[in-house]
Structure formats: structure tokens, C-alpha cells
């Protein structure tokens, strides 16, 4: 296997990483936002449910969460299609989403805490319901204040996609294992190359978040 072929292998691996990343990104933002909303809701049941979920899932190693999804869900006959590679992709996405959403929710909650209480009072005084107050006034501001820590959460998730290779997902780490198997003479360069792949993706993400931070900054 020569260099162009190795590169092709790595690009296909990187593509696998990105697919998983984007699905989990959207999923964890949606679920994380819902959880954060539940955390600050006036209904005790919702608050308790959200904080219980967060405390359980956040404190479970991601490998175990993946294990539960990859082996537990099929055991419960929860499947998403005939092909096992698609199933495994969904299982891994669910695991990453479930896990990362906890961190997104906690980050958002800390952002919510920084929003002056007058903002919520003004929203309620205008007649907005709790959900509208959260959706129109509190969360948009909370998101903007926590863009930097949210960036760290998302970069951590990018790296966490690597665990999915242990559960029937082909991504960057699979490409690395593959390449090592084929080119034993290039082990160290291959390891460096893999690290470089993650570094590249993480740096791009970092730039995106820097941009968002500048673009969406709130003057007070």
C-alpha cells in the first residue's frame, strides 16, 4: 500500500469520523437544550428527571454507554434498519448524543445562571410563557455566553467518536489500525498522521467557535 492509498484510507476514515460527529453534534445540542430547560423548569418532576439523567449518564464512562447502546439496544430488539453497519452507526450516535448532551446541558445551565434575573422577569411581564421565556430570551443569551466552554465540550466529543470504532464503526481510528496492519514499517508516522487528523479537525472546530464567539457576543 503506497502513500496515495494510505491517504485515501485516512480520508475515508476521517469521513466516518465526521459523519458520526455531525449527527451527534445535532443530537446533543437538541437533547442538551431540552435537558437544560428541564433543569431550570418550575416543575419539580422535570427538574428531578433531568438531573437524575445527567448525573447517571455523565458519570458513566462513554465506553460503557456505547456498550449499552451497541449490545443492549439490539438485545431489546431496538433496531434501525437491516444493515448492521447502519444500526451500529445509529447506536454509536445515540451513545455519543446521550453522553455529550449531559455536558451541553450542564454548560448551558451555567450560562443560564449568568443571565440577569431581570431578563426573565421582563419576558414574563410581557406575557411570555415559561417555554417562550426560555426559548426566546434565556437560552439564546445563555448559548452566547457559553460558546467557549461549549467549544471544549464539542471538541471532546470529536475525540470521543474514536471509541465508536470498537463498536462496528469505521472512522479515523479504524483507518489507523488498518494502516498499521498494512505498513508495519511506518507505525510511528501513522500514529502521528492520525493525531494530525484529529488536530486538524479540532483546530477547525476551534476556529468556528472563535468566529461564533466574536459574531454573537452580547453587549451589556
Amino acid at each position: 500500500m503506497d502513500l496515495p492509498e494510505l491517504l485515501r484510507l485516512f480520508f475515508s476514515g476521517m469521513w466516518g469520523t465526521l459523519e458520526l460527529f455531525f449527527v451527534a453534534l445535532i443530537g446533543s445540542f437538541v437533547l442538551g437544550t431540552i435537558l437544560a430547560g428541564m433543569r431550570v423548569s418550575p416543575t419539580p418532576v422535570l427538574r428531578i428527571a433531568a438531573s437524575t439523567y445527567i448525573n447517571v449518564v455523565r458519570n458513566t464512562p462513554l465506553t460503557l454507554v456505547m456498550f449499552f447502546c451497541a449490545f443492549g439496544l439490539p438485545f431489546l430488539d431496538i433496531r434501525f434498519g437491516a444493515s448492521s453497519s447502519f444500526n451500529s452507526f445509529i447506536y454509536a450516535s445515540i451513545a455519543l448524543t446521550a453522553y455529550t448532551a449531559c455536558f451541553v446541558a450542564e454548560t448551558l445551565k451555567s450560562g443560564i445562571a449568568t443571565i440577569p434575573v431581570g431578563q426573565a422577569e421582563a419576558a414574563r411581564a410581557v406575557g411570555l410563557t415559561f417555554g417562550q421565556t426560555l426559548g426566546e430570551v434565556i437560552l439564546p443569551q445563555a448559548f452566547r455566553t457559553v460558546i467557549p466552554p461549549l467549544g471544549s465540550v464539542i471538541i471532546a466529543m470529536l475525540k470521543n467518536t474514536s471509541i465508536a470504532s470498537a463498536f462496528n464503526n469505521r472512522e479515523l481510528i479504524s483507518a489507523m489500525r488498518n494502516a498499521i496492519e498494512l505498513r508495519g514499517d511506518l507505525v510511528i508516522p501513522i500514529l502521528f498522521g492520525t493525531a494530525l487528523g484529529y488536530l486538524l479537525l479540532a483546530l477547525i472546530l476551534g476556529r468556528v467557535f472563535d468566529y461564533l464567539e466574536r459574531k454573537l457576543v452580547i453587549l451589556r
Binding site: 431578563q119 422577569e121 421582563a122 414574563r124 411581564a125 426566546e136 452566547r144 452580547i218 453587549l219
Partner: peptide
């Protein structure tokens, strides 16, 4: 609840610290 929200919409309020939505 929703009923209170409806009532509040009929009661305008102006605060000491303005509380305009900053975003």
C-alpha cells in the same frame, strides 16, 4: 401557567433597570 401569562400580557411593566432583551 398559561392563564397567568395571559394576564401578564394585559399588565405592562417597566423596571428600574430597564431589562431590555440584550440579544
Amino acid at each position: 401557567g398559561a392563564e397567568l401569562a395571559a394576564l401578564r400580557s394585559d399588565v405592562g411593566m417597566v423596571f428600574q433597570s430597564f431589562n431590555l432583551f440584550s440579544h
